[in-house]
Amino acid sequence: MLGPAVYDELDGLLAAEDAALADRYPGDRPGRQPLHTVYVPADKVTEDLPSRWGAAALAALDEHGLPYDADLHDRIAAKLRTEPVEDLRIDFEDGYGHRDDAVEDAEARRAAGILATRPAPFSGIRMKCFEAPTRHRAIRTLDLLLDALGGVPDGFVVTLPKVTSVAQVEAMAALCRRLDPALRFEIQIETSQSILGPDGTALVARMVHAAGGLATGLHYGTYDYSAACGIAAHHQSMDHPAADHAKAVMQVAAAGTGVRLSDGSTNILPVGDRDAVHAAWALHLRLVGRSLERGYYQGWDLHPAQLPTRFAANYAFFRAGAPLAARRLSAWLDRADSGFLDEPATARALAGFLRRGLECGALEREPYAELVDRA
């Protein structure tokens, strides 16, 4: 039999790896993840934007209807009245464009005033990218906004777009540490270089770790990434094979790190006559549901009339899966037979599914909360 010295020797050999594993892969980030990010150009944002979007979404729902039972319809309507926007991102990048410095300076200060009112549970800005032509403008906007805010509010995050190198992520982390230790940022993956670097490696994985724990999310940019890959405009979509490949790489890179994933958006908006709205809603429902099935629990919305289908897809997804998930988790906890040979990792996934359903309002606390607490 091996003696204690051998155990100690192997522990010593692996001590550095044990510490690195715990540091690099701390597990899921605690707390609620928003179902969506609403992204609006800075000059279009007002303090009452969430309530205006909620009212517009309710009007679309009342006018055109959705094919769901009364309970789900009432649940969606209640959400639109009380919390129509979960995550608001004030956009200073593509949606805003290039303005005179004095104009963007003033807009940054005005945005700070809006953010100070806590218009949504989660909020932030999308700054311009760190490429040379826009880098100084990006830094100045963030600096002015945080100075006007007087600090980093709870739930605030900055989106760094068009990331093309690990060095840009390192620079963003250095900027965050200089501006405020509480500042966190998201990495928007919308360039081909972030998925496959010049050395043939997936740079997004290195980006996650280069952030030094300050990156909270990876957000997929549907149209910039598709265009970078040479996909024709009328074929650019969230479910294109190129998009699926990019998001699969992102998913593996983020797994276990505490960095969350967000899918992109569809630019086919539910506007026009009833047929056009229903067609856009059917597309949005399918795409959001598809993202959920693939483990993307967040996405981007660009128009108030996309909110009914955002919440409808999420509520239907969690409500449909909850009974079986609860039965399997209960059986695993009680060492009973469920008809499934579930393992600890699957039990954690079942509990995580129910937890998300509770956090987003799709599920009632009973009987699910007790199971999640036990797990």
Rank of each mutant, 00 (worst) to 15 (best):
G27D: 02
V163I: 14
I139W: 03
S123H: 15
A253R: 08
T216E: 08
A326N: 03
E63I: 09
L49Q: 05
R206F: 04
A233V: 15
A246L: 07
P84H: 10
A112D: 03
G54E: 01
E170W: 01
P50I: 04
A148I: 07
S51P: 10
G339T: 04
C129Y: 13
L21E: 08
L333R: 13
L145C: 10
R184V: 12
D273N: 12
P4H: 03
A182N: 12
L214E: 05
E370Q: 10
F317L: 02
F122Y: 15
V6L: 11
R374H: 00
A320P: 02
A282N: 15
L287N: 12
A57G: 06
A167N: 14
P119V: 03
Y223T: 08
I189A: 15
D301H: 12
R99P: 10
Y7D: 08
G97A: 00
D143L: 07
R52W: 06
E131G: 14
R327M: 10
T266C: 02
G151Y: 10
L58A: 02
Q168S: 08
G151I: 08
D18I: 09
E293A: 14
A280Q: 08
Y7W: 09
L61W: 03
R355G: 09
G113P: 04
A305I: 02
R24G: 09
A254P: 10
E47I: 15
L358Q: 14
Q188V: 12
L115V: 11
